[in-house]
Simulated assay, not measured.
Amino acid sequence: MGAYYTKEDITGYIAKNTIIPYLFDAAEKKCAIAFQPTSALWQLLRDDSDRYIYEPVRTGVDLPLPEEIARGIGDVSRRGGWNRPAAPVFALPTETWREHVSRRQRCLEVREKLQAGEVHQINDLITYNLDMRQFAEDVISTCEGPELLRAFWQAIKSVTVLDPTCGSGAFLFAALNILEPLYEACLDRMQAFVDDLDRSGERHRPEKFRDFRRTLAEVERHPNRRYFILKSIIVNNLYGVDIMEEAVEICKLRLFLNLVAQVDRVKDLEPLPDIDFNIRPGNTLVGFVSLEEIRRAAERDAAGQGRLIYGEIDEAIRRIEEDAEIVERALIWVGQRHMTSGAGATSPSIGSQSSMASCGVVDLM
């Protein structure tokens, strides 16, 4: 059996253009005022438009065109040299003058739209192929109010990325590479808010920025910040399924090695998180994906006609719902234990019965 590994540019492109728009949409629901067309958030695009246009797109566009090429822009009959390779200072690899002029016009058009403030939806950055990763990092790093930062932090912490055919983890690692700098930007901005408040000496309520301080204190309980970030992403954000058990084990091993590589001293290495909940072997082409699908299937016969649920069917649905609730509680408990346990803490897999009972997950152990 062969294996195909999707190239990083493809996985990165797909991950970027799905995860980041979701985060912006989720943050907008929590802090809608920050996403108004005239807000400081979109002002970033107007103030420094070239920062978000990829460098290859901008290559040579600000240089004056040679006369023999420029005269063909307004006169089709004078484009005799447009099919020749463009001069290196203007061109991308293998690019002709015709291709350069087309790219040049597109770049100038996009730049004009950005500077005019016509781009104020996150999906527009996909349409115009702009550097969405850089924009997301800048939005978080420069956010003026704590509410916008909280909105992004909650969105980043809670987003779940599922690859139903994860293999050895190509798309999951692409998602990790997207999320890591966003976690970093959030933590940096939290620290800046806390430091500014402490330096100001102003009188304030004790609970001001308490959530930021709590998060930063949690980071300190780990070997280093990058370890905390990677652990958070692996435990809370990444999920995968693959029909090949060997591929699943390789995927988990790659994630573990990436985490362990952040620790310099053996004594700082804490028990590795149990991600059997996150990365699992299975066949995603069969079975049900939600409780609602199970209920609908039980309510209908092969012809699609409705029928009453009673007796054995009713009892089976009840057991499935109970089991699903237990698994959900267990998953929440495991995630919380992983993130609150510091180096040398008890592994969640061998936690005390009393602590698990409080979460209703004793039946799974």
Rank of each mutant, 00 (worst) to 15 (best):
F277N: 14
P85D: 10
F173K: 08
F35V: 09
R319K: 15
R79N: 06
R78I: 01
Q105H: 04
R189V: 01
R213N: 05
G351Y: 00
L259T: 06
N283G: 07
L176E: 14
V286Y: 13
R210S: 09
I156H: 12
V362F: 00
P181H: 04
V248E: 10
T94W: 07
H222I: 05
N129C: 07
G304N: 01
L364N: 03
G81C: 04
D138V: 06
A170P: 00
D276A: 07
G2T: 15
P66E: 09
D211V: 01
R300I: 11
S232I: 10
N123E: 06
Y13K: 12
D47Y: 14
C359Q: 04
L148N: 12
E202T: 01
R78G: 03
V327H: 02
Q105V: 05
N237S: 08
N278P: 03
N129A: 09
E144T: 12
T215D: 14
L41F: 05
F209I: 04
D314Q: 15
T340Q: 05
T346P: 00
M365R: 01
T127R: 04
I20D: 02
P206D: 09
F256E: 04
T6K: 04
L259Y: 11
R106K: 10
V110I: 09
P348G: 06
F24A: 01
R329L: 01
L364M: 11
D163V: 00
D301G: 11
L197M: 14
E299N: 11
N129H: 11
V361P: 05
